[in-house]
Simulated assay, not measured.
Amino acid sequence: MPDNQRVVLPTGVGLSATLTGSGDGPFVLLNPGMSMSQTSWELTELIAPLVDAGFRVLSYTARGVTGSDAPPPPYDIPSMADDAAGLLDHFDIDRAILVGYSMGCYITQALLERRPGTALGVVMWAGLGSSEISNFVNEMELGLFERYGELPKEVSAFETMLTTLDRASLQDQATVRGWRDLLVHRPSSWASPDGHHGQLAASQSWVLAGEPTAARLAAIDVPTLVMAYSEDLFFPPATSRAAAALIPDAQFVEIDGFAHGGFMLDPSHTAPGHIVDFCRRVRDGAR
């Protein structure tokens, strides 16, 4: 993996970014989910297969997460989309396939509007059609920030475990103990409480504004792949499928047996396989 670069955008915000691959193949931009670092993208095992297939991949760490700057809140999704657009400009990328994971789907949707003509295709992975549980968790976490100035580590660990593991794993006592110990004692991925609060507020404001609207989804005019995990509490298949139906000719894929964090636990890397196949079809001109 090439070394990360620190890219200072015209706004003065510095982001950690990596451009992987060479040659003249199409670009793929990876828009990260909440708290997602470069290491998280490596866990998906998506980048290497894309590069092997001839693509050039731009991944980055969004504002607020360790490795990038955490300017004071407020953050919002359009500003985070502008961050992504600034990275495209820095690397002289005019067009790319846009891949969003979780909150990265919000960034992708905003980027489509703010940079018309940029997208060759769109992948929305575990991030289209948020649930009432997702909205309630965001509301709860923002309330804890207002009360304590940060999110207690045990609360964050519990939420991550509950939304990452499948039902069978959550009922296995040894698995739960192991994940609890791992999550409670691991270093925080946040650059500061400001970064954590900023991303949470950006996500919540997007959802409270009624996004994505039916009109926004209907306006997507490039090949689109929507993927949902069967046990995802935040973006369940039913709401993802309904939202995908509003996008002209979108392909919908449900991945069985995993929850929201399925990219970390799927030994066959099902989602990356679908994404690489989709990118090949876009490159070859198929809708």
Rank of each mutant, 00 (worst) to 15 (best):
Asp24Thr: 15
Glu42Val: 11
Ser35His: 03
Ile47Arg: 06
Met34Glu: 01
Thr18His: 00
Thr18Cys: 13
Glu45Lys: 14
Phe27Ala: 11
Glu42Gln: 15
Ser16Val: 02
Leu15Arg: 02
Leu15His: 07
Ser40Asn: 12
Ser22Thr: 12
Ser22Trp: 04
Glu45Asn: 13
Met34Val: 15
Gly14Pro: 03
Phe27Tyr: 15
Ser22Cys: 03
Ser22Ile: 05
Thr20Phe: 01
Pro32Ile: 11
Glu42Thr: 13
Glu45Thr: 04
Val28Trp: 00
Thr39Leu: 13
Gly21Tyr: 11
Val28Pro: 01
Thr18Tyr: 01
Leu30Asp: 02
Ile47Cys: 06
Thr44Met: 09
Ser16Met: 04
Leu46Trp: 03
Pro32Glu: 09
Asn31Gln: 13
Leu30Cys: 13
Thr39Pro: 04
Ala17Tyr: 12
Ser37Met: 14
Gly33Arg: 04
Gly33Gln: 05
Thr39Asn: 13
Asp24Arg: 06
Thr44His: 06
Gly25Ile: 06
Gly21Trp: 07
Leu43His: 09
Phe27Cys: 08
Ser37Tyr: 09
Thr20Asn: 05
Pro32Gly: 08
Pro26Tyr: 08
Leu29Arg: 01
Asn31Ala: 14
Asn31His: 06
Thr39Asp: 15
Ser40Val: 11
Thr20Asp: 13
Leu15Ser: 05
Leu19His: 04
Thr20Met: 02
Pro32Tyr: 08
Val28Ala: 06
Met34Phe: 10
Phe27Val: 14
Thr39Lys: 13
Leu43Cys: 08
Ser16Phe: 02
Thr44Trp: 15
Leu29Ser: 05
Thr44Asp: 00
Ser40Gly: 13
Pro32Phe: 07
Met36Tyr: 03
Asp24Pro: 00
Trp41Met: 03
Asn31Met: 10
Leu43Arg: 10
Leu30Trp: 01
Leu29Pro: 00
Met34Gly: 03
Leu29Met: 14
Pro26Lys: 05
Met36Leu: 04
Met36Gly: 03
Leu43Gly: 04
Leu19Pro: 05
Leu15Trp: 02
